[in-house]
């Protein structure tokens, strides 16, 4: 088990830290940073991950809160749970195609909106743009947020609300002084995960646009399979290493936040 995980990991770490002649070097990192294309890819990836994760986090929490207050164990819970699981973890490619069917050039929604005089594509919208891909990302970010935040929301005891209300707090006061501070660490932690998720996701972008999109995973694909330049292999591995570092930082941040989150939610 460890072997199958270890081989690719070793190749990436080793490849990113050595030259063609197998000498130890940090040059690869410097080269990817000096390359305009890769810098742009990183910038795009970061921007994409930030806005999709924040949007996903807010709407996900909102929706999760609405579902949690419904009858526990009911149909709504079940459907939300299973649906979220499907969309968040297993749906990359099919999701992208549904999206194309809806908002692509000849998509159903696009055509429908044209009937009402709104031409999306006339205003520069395409599903292969950053906005388009990001919008599709939101389709798995929101469900993931629901999965992540639901336990925290369920941990909010109804006693706390009753206590606050009995002590004269308003509903808003309860939210402001009790619910939000208790939930904040979980919320931040989940948002970090959403960020990491968007950052490392590739399936959706691959299906929507292909490897030409300027985000880091696509650049890795390109560098390894595109045969554009000599030495691109190494650039691909180095980009991979850099991705691991980014995700690792996010993970560490998550651990810290999670420690705080556990304090109230037991």
């Amino acid at each position: 088990m460890v072997v199958f995980l270890g081989i690719p990991l070793f190749v990436v770490v080793h490849g990113s830290l050595t030259t063609e002649t197998n000498q130890f070097t940090f040059d690869n990192f410097k080269q990817t940073w000096d390359s305009q294309g890769y810098r742009l890819a990183f910038k795009n990836s970061l921007i994409l991950s930030v806005w999709t994760s924040i949007l996903g986090a807010f709407f996900g929490t909102w929706l999760a809160a609405a579902v949690v207050t419904a009858k526990p164990g009911g149909m709504l819970h079940r459907i939300t749970q299973s649906g979220s699981g499907v969309l968040a973890y297993f749906a990359g490619v099919p999701l992208a195609f549904c999206f194309i069917a809806a908002l692509g050039q000849t998509g159903v929604v696009t055509v429908l909106l044209k009937h009402f005089g709104i031409d999306l594509y006339a205003h520069g919208f395409t599903i292969s743009s950053m906005i388009g891909v990001g919008l599709c990302y939101v389709y798995f970010q929101i469900p993931l947020m629901i999965i992540l935040i639901t336990p925290a929301l369920e941990g909010l005891r109804s006693e706390w609300q009753e206590a606050a209300l009995n002590l004269g707090a308003s509903r808003f006061g309860y939210l402001r002084h009790v619910a939000v501070p208790v939930l904040l660490p979980s919320f931040v932690g989940a948002t970090l995960i959403l960020f990491g998720n968007a950052f490392s996701a590739y399936a959706t972008a691959l299906a929507l646009v292909g490897s030409t999109l300027s985000i880091v995973p696509a650049q890795i694909d390109n560098a390894l399979n595109g045969n554009v330049l000599v030495g691109a292999d190494r650039a691909g591995l180095t980009l991979g290493m850099e991705m691991i570092v980014v995700v690792l930082i996010v993970m560490v941040g998550y651990w810290f936040v999670q420690r705080r989150a556990r304090r109230w939610l037991r």
């Binding site: 995980l5 081989i7 690719p8 990991l9 070793f10 190749v11 990436v12 490849g15 950052f199 490392s200 590739y202 995973p217 890795i220 694909d221 390894l224 399979n225 292999d233 691909g236 591995l237 991979g240 290493m241 991705m243 691991i244 995700v247 690792l248 993970m251």
Partner: peptide, 18 residues
């Protein structure tokens, strides 16, 4: 948890080189 820390695309990249 490692499979989550290592993005699939990176895992694939390593494998391809291997």
């Amino acid at each position: 948890l490692l499979p989550i820390v290592i993005p699939p695309v990176v895992m694939a990249a390593g494998l391809e080189q291997f």
